[in-house]
Amino acid sequence: MSPQFTLQSLILRTAAHFLLPLLLIFSVFLLLRGHNEPGGGFIAGLVAASAVALYMFALDIRSAKRVLRFEPRDLLGWGLLFGVISGVPAVFMGQPFFTSQWLELTLPVLGDLKVGTPLLFDIGVYLVVIGGVLLILLSLAEAEE
């Protein structure tokens, strides 16, 4: 029942402004490299969620919600939807649910690129983790205030 939920630290507040975009970019980096190297949707989601959480501790809940733009619930819903949908294309190829489907593209700048359903699934996991963690954190923080 502390009256002051956020930490009143100028250093942290200033740092949070810079750290938030950096951490978010890092989380996307983790998400994209996750298929063959350490990384993936889960820890990427945790990094992104902790970035917003840091922002919340440094400033306050309202600014954290503003910077998030989306309701955590919606992120959760879209993430779950992506996860389920990523299993469906396999059915049209006559294979069991969740069999990976890959599409090989040759793009002018990026060169050969393989895009597939596991990426969609990972994005789903990413969104679910951000949504879930922030839903719990925000509801706990709001109850505290």
């Binding site: 309701e71 919606d74 819903g77 389920v84 069991p96 649910f97």
Partner: peptide
């Protein structure tokens, strides 16, 4: 056999939909 997975996939899919349609 598609039907084995459907009873699991359908509630997950509609659960996600109800979250989006909050």
């Amino acid at each position: 056999r598609l039907e084995v997975a459907l009873p699991v996939i359908i509630p997950l899919f509609f659960g996600a939909l109800t979250l989006i349609l909050w």
